[in-house]
């Protein structure tokens, strides 16, 4: 008696659940579901990216649904692979991904493609060789970090003389964008005939960059500029120069245009940084995925803007950034 009662209850519950899920599904079938999978949410850059995507979705809630996910830190590659697998299991229509590792994520992205899901790669480019090996084409939508770093480097070089010694403070050496930025800085230095006397990784960290720059300016007192692969490290460099009383003789440049450097840019303590429009980056990817889903476009790579930010551009900055955002 009791067990039959229980059975009936369970049955009713099952039916109710099925109805709810069915309704849930029916409601969303006309609206594509897009998964945004990012790297570290501990990083201001990705926070900005996520917020930009959420705002975009809110503004056009009738066009698509957004599932945004991130991992603990940029090294948690296996967790990111799990996230992609979960999204495949959920049957999303498109995945927009900023891969934590350019090689390890290729296999799972291929699985998503095989399951009929549109995959768009943003921010950190998947390795071309591995993609070719797996026989899969995934469009990349994002900025050219090398070109951006070169612009920053050229702005610094314009204020220096040929043969001046400079230092490069690199990001994490295993990250694709860190390598691209270093290469971009080197391009600018080579073109202007600057002498790169030191190039060391500080793993994107302010405190580490501070230690490294302190050491470098002691060993190379004549140094004229420190080109840093992100703004956090530029902050560390500025602190090191201030402590050594060399703030006026060494130019510091960064990358990313985070809020913390705005004041320093205005004061000229950081001479240049690059803005890759983090808030628009995921949006570019999402809009591209939507276009592919509508059949408006065939998958191909798409470059997004990277803008040089200096004290001069800051003054007329807001309208400039908006204009580029609209263009993208």
């Amino acid at each position: 008696m009791c067990s039959r009662h229980l059975m009936r209850m369970c049955g009713a519950l099952l039916v109710a659940l099925t109805v709810v899920t069915a309704c849930g599904c029916r409601e969303t079938t006309d609206k594509p579901r897009i998964a945004l999978i990012m790297k570290s949410l501990a990083n201001e850059f990705f926070m900005t990216m996520e917020n930009g995507a959420r705002d975009h979705q809110k503004a056009q809630a009738d066009k698509y649904e957004l599932i945004a996910q991130g991992i603990k830190d940029e090294l948690d590659v296996s967790r990111q692979i799990q996230l992609v697998e979960q999204m495949i299991a959920q049957g999303v229509d498109a995945i927009v991904i900023a891969p934590a590792d350019s090689k390890s994520l290729v296999a799972v992205c291929k699985r998503a493609r095989d399951a009929g899901i549109v995959v768009v790669n943003i921010d950190n480019r998947l390795d071309a060789e591995v993609l070719r090996e797996k026989g899969v084409a995934i469009p990349f939508v994002g900025p050219d970090n090398r070109k951006g770093a070169r612009k920053v480097g050229e702005h610094v070089a314009a204020q220096l003389a040929q043969g001046d010694p400079v230092a490069i403070i690199e990001g994490a050496p295993n990250a694709y964008n860190a390598v691209q930025r270093r290469l971009g800085f080197e391009d600018a230095c080579n073109a202007a005939g600057l002498d790169v006397v030191a190039s060391q990784p500080a793993h994107w960290e302010m405190a580490r960059a501070n230690e490294i720059v302190s050491g470098i300016i002691t060993e190379h007192p004549a140094i004229k500029a420190a080109l840093c692969a992100n703004d956090s490290m530029a902050l560390g460099a500025v602190a090191a120069l201030r402590a050594a009383g060399k703030l006026n003789s060494v130019l510091v440049a960064g990358f990313d245009n985070i809020s913390a450097v705005q004041g320093l840019l205005a004061k000229g303590e950081i001479v240049a940084t690059a803005d890759q429009h983090a808030d628009q980056l995921a949006v570019f990817g999402i809009e591209y995925a939507l276009a592919i889903l509508r059949g408006d476009t065939t998958p191909a790579d798409k470059e997004t803007p990277v803008d040089l930010v200096t004290r001069e551009t800051l003054q007329g900055g807001v309208s400039g950034a908006l204009a580029t955002g609209a263009a993208g």
Partner: peptide
């Protein structure tokens, strides 16, 4: 020393 507080520090 850093003139800034970085949540990623330490």
């Amino acid at each position: 020393r850093m003139s800034a507080a970085d949540p990623n520090t330490g």
